[in-house]
Structure formats: structure tokens, C-alpha cells
Design a protein around this nucleic acid. Sequence first.
DNA 1: ACCTGAACACCGTTCAAGT
DNA 2: ACCTGAACACCGTTCAAGT
Lengths: 225, 225
Amino acid sequence: MRNRMARTATPSAVEATERSGRRTGLERADIVSAALDLVERDGPGALTMRRLATDLDVGTPTIYWHVANRDELIAEVIRLQSSRLAEQAITGTTARDRVFSAARNIWTSSIEHRATTSLAHQTGTTSLLAHHLEAALVMELEAAGLVGPDAADASRAILITIGGALVLALRDLSASPADSRPDALWANSDAPIAPATRDALRAEPDLDALSATTLRAVIDHFVPA
Amino acid sequence: MRNRMARTATPSAVEATERSGRRTGLERADIVSAALDLVERDGPGALTMRRLATDLDVGTPTIYWHVANRDELIAEVIRLQSSRLAEQAITGTTARDRVFSAARNIWTSSIEHRATTSLAHQTGTTSLLAHHLEAALVMELEAAGLVGPDAADASRAILITIGGALVLALRDLSASPADSRPDALWANSDAPIAPATRDALRAEPDLDALSATTLRAVIDHFVPA
DNA sequence: ACCTGAACACCGTTCAAGT
DNA sequence: ACCTGAACACCGTTCAAGT
């Protein structure tokens, strides 16, 4: 109800609503955007077909008329979020700085929309989510003089670095038992490690900074100055 | 049945079996190792409480007497696998080579046991799985002259690189719709990218090689020669 | 102390039936 | 063409009841 009213009434939707109240005027795009809202609001675990149907004021099987199954829906959700991330400014004057800037855009937008990023991560669609920003990255790599396999390798190495940092940044420590968390692991480890190192390993890492310096190192290696 | 017979009969287990056939002699360790077998055999998705109970010839609720819940069970499974991975030879003479060797041990064992790695990955327990091998890595970093935050940062940067490559290596492309796969994404992209680069991006990456060279770059940056 | 059947509250998905 | 109630085959988890 709420949603049916809120949606911009296309002519066909109005006509349908007038006709009998049977047609909801629901379209594929409505489902996908409601799903994205749901994920951003309540996390990736909230995206169930039943909850989504409730949000849309519709019976659960209705969704299956517009979308083949949950996997396809998720792909559409990630695709939508990917397109929203498409345009981001790239700064810097040197080739390496501009590549770094393009890479950082992927990192920051992934962190900003962590719920959607986690969803992509869980479903193995990270490359879909990052695709537009990755294309921008590849363009900077070509501008830096890399083509073909060299450009592909560099972009993948950069993606690997970002993705790896995201794995650490997005994991939910509260989900795992207390004695399985890194803190406890290093506290109880009997490995011959210097106390200072052990303390550093127990502390929460500054992943934003660490991801940036690792990124610099990788870019310096793959991109000619 | 099969499992009850195969298990080494501890005195108490024999006693219990003789008593009535009611006691199964099931122990926590049996459950955990059966769970690991199940994952390695049929993949992470196969680890359900019901399937596990069937494998053990036991009612489903029995598992909850030995283990608090599924999350705790998974943590134990990962912990067991982690301990099996504990001892691995490190080769090389220079500090950097030995660090690289320790890092490579994490990569190769993760790939070899990809089902368990995926499970850890899905549940955010990667650091638990890698812990022993990570400790070995840290020891090599200290031998290379790094202590405290420097050692922690280096080990985390290395873990990030490995983890990121694993994300790409372990994702199941067959799960996502055809037009969401990287191949199709780059084929249909309207970004101004050189044909040679586009082709390279469409091709399946050699992640084993790429992970190794990225690892070298990161190690060279963090570990003094 | 250890184990179970039955039940609860969820899933994704299908399908005959409605308009 | 579009939508639904009811059902199927799964989940994780709980709990009273058994030995």
C-alpha cells in the first residue's frame, strides 16, 4: 500500500489500479530497488523473498513472476548499485596518483555501502559490483602506458589488494565465538613472538591506512613512473 | 553405525555401548571431524546440522548437546583444519625469500582445501584458519628485522594480498547469471578500452602466478632486503 | 549424562487457481 | 498478463520426554 502510493504513477499503473485493485503495477525495477533499500537498511541477511514481498505489499510468489530466482535478483541489485557508483572524480596529476585515486574510489564506495558490498562478497559478485569503477581504473592504467595483459594484470592486482582489505574490514567479529577472534588468538598463541609484535597483532588494525599503503606498493610495482 | 564402528573404541565408549545401545559414545571431536569430512567431501553448503547428524547416525538434536550451535561448530571445524595445516616447511635463504615461502604456504594450502577455505571465508573466520601459518609468517618477519607494528602491518598486508586473490580464485562463476560474469561484462562494456586490454580482461586470469608476483611486490615493500 | 521425536519459526520455490 | 494461497522440501534450534 505505502509503496504502491509512493511509486510514481505511470499511465499503465494508474489504469491498472483503477481497473480492479488486482494489478499492483509492480515492475522489475521496483523490486530491485526495494531489494537494494532493504539490504542497505537492514543488512544482507535481511534480503529474503518474504521480507521483500512484505515491503512491496505483495504476495511472495509475485516476485517470481518478475524475477527468475533469488540469485538473479541479487545480480540485479548489485548491478543497480554498481551503476549508482559509476561516476566518481579521479584526482592527481601523475599517472600513479591517478591510478591510486581510481583504486581508492573502489575502496571508499565499498566501505560506504558495506551492506551491499557484503552481499556481493557473499555471492561472489564483487566483480559485478566494482565493474564500472574498475573500467575507470583500467582507463587510467592505459593512460599510464599499460595495454593488454599488462593492464589486465595491474588492474587485477589492484582489485586483489582492495578485495583482501575488504575481507578484513567487513567481517563481523561479533559473529564468531570470543576465543576465535584474532585478539584472543594472539593472546593465547604459544609461538615465539616478541611481546611488542604480539601486542600489535592483538590491536585493531587501521585498515584504511594499511589498504592505502599496500595499494601504493602494488601500484608502484605494476605502473611505470 | 558405520561411524560408531569405525571410531576407536575408548573404554568409556565400549562400556556405554554395552550398557544399552542408548549411548552412542559420540564425542565433540567426532562431530567436528565428521563435519570437516563433510565439508571437504561435498562443499561448504553441505554442512547442515541434519546432514551431519545423518552422517553420524544420530538424531539432529544430539549435536546440540555437544556443541552450542552451528557457529561454534564451524569455528571448531576451522580450528581443526588450522591445526592440521600447522607444520609446513619454509624454504629460502634470504629474509624476503623465506617470508615469501611462508606466505605461499598459506596460499597453497588454502587452494588445496578450497571447500574449507570457502567455509571460513563465508563465515569470516579466515584469520582463525590461517592462524598457525600466519604465526610462522610473523616469525619470519621478525627474523627479517621487523618488530611490533612493523611486523603486524607487514603480515596483514601479506594476508590481504593472499585473501584478495583467494576471493577471485574461490568464487563460483557458475552460480551467477551468464551476463554477470566478468567475461560478458567486459565484452559488453562501452568503456573506451583498447581491444587488446579488453581481450586480456575477458580471459581467465592465472591467479596462481598473479598472486605470487603481487606477493613479491608487497614483500619487497614491507621487508627490508 | 546423553539422546530423541516432535515442534517452532523460518527459508526458497512451485503451482493450481483466481482476476 | 499478473497475482495469490497453499503446499513442498528444506533450514537452525528448542524442549519435554525417554534411558
